[in-house]
Nucleic acid binder design. Structure first.
Lengths: 155, 155
DNA sequence: GCCAGTATGATATTCGGTATCATTTAGGCA
DNA sequence: TGCCTAAATGATACCGAATATCATACTGGC
């Protein structure tokens, strides 16, 4: 069961799917005035190749020919432009993964590290109301759910 | 409006309330076999004196006569024994505060830093169901809600 | 093909936190 | 009460993740 699935672009290219994803992301960046550079493409390509949430260091390791600073900058840029989202593990380790658009929450498998997006869960309203009851006006929230995916379930 | 309130012990002591809190926590520790030491009491006392979520570094700064390592160790011990809980800000900065018992979530004011506990909000069941729908067996979760407290509300 | 400004990468630095280890101290016990 | 062992302390070294610096290289508009 593949849990982390790449974003759908709506139509298939003859080129490898990852290349299309990279082109798509680069296009988003150039639209915003960022340049299309070789190291940047390498970073994006490596991000797209990850099967599950990854750390910045893992990304650096998979890109020996790209400078550390460049990898970190690239990653930060992708987060800022919402191409990549941050995932926080239980031990507070920070990981990243391709963003599946919009605000959402993650289900994280503690065993294999797989992630899924939490669907059909509208906690927003509940939280807003509970916050209001305490006199708070909610502006945002962070939610991660930890557990075991079906592949790693033990009985 | 005082938002972060110290735990109620059920009856009032003639001594300063903070001293009672410290004694209470020290008692919990000695019950578990940990020793009652001067530096440890100083750390606990400083923790109890904080009005809102604080960082480990702030605690160190407020305890110049206690070694850094000891402050960190004391804090870790308090977290492990559930006397203190960890609070994660939006920028991922880690803060701490006296625990108000049991599992709960925080409302955090982005302006003044005050915190309140999220009451009357049973997201647990909702999350467990949504996780199950994705084939996950939920084992835990992390939730923080950010906003403005009533004192800092702007209109 | 030129050029201004962006991006890169080697490296130093910062920051938060942990490991080490010699010394001190708590507290159980005779 | 004083002794003794294990726990605790604190100065310091270390560590990993991430950012700042800055000279150099490259992009892409003209």
């Amino acid at each position: 069961m593949v849990i982390t699935t790449p974003r759908h672009t709506g139509h298939e290219h003859p080129r490898p799917r990852s290349a299309a994803v990279v082109d798509d992301i680069v296009a988003q960046l150039t639209d915003r005035g960022y340049r299309d550079t070789e190291p940047r493409r390498l970073v994006i390509s490596a991000v797209a190749a990850q099967g599950r949430p990854f750390t910045a260091e893992e990304l650096c390791a998979s890109l020996p020919c790209v400078g550390r600073a460049t990898v970190y900058r690239g990653l930060r840029l992708l987060v800022e432009t919402d191409q990549v989202c941050r995932v926080l593990l239980e031990d507070r380790e920070l990981r990243y993964q391709l963003s599946h658009q919009g605000h959402h929450h993650h289900l994280l498998c503690a065993v294999c590290g797989a992630s899924a997006d939490l669907e059909g869960c509208d906690v927003e309203e509940t939280l807003r109301d509970a916050a209001a009851a305490a006199g708070f006006r909610m502006s945002g929230h962070w939610l991660e759910v930890y557990g075991r995916c079906s592949d790693c379930a033990e009985d």
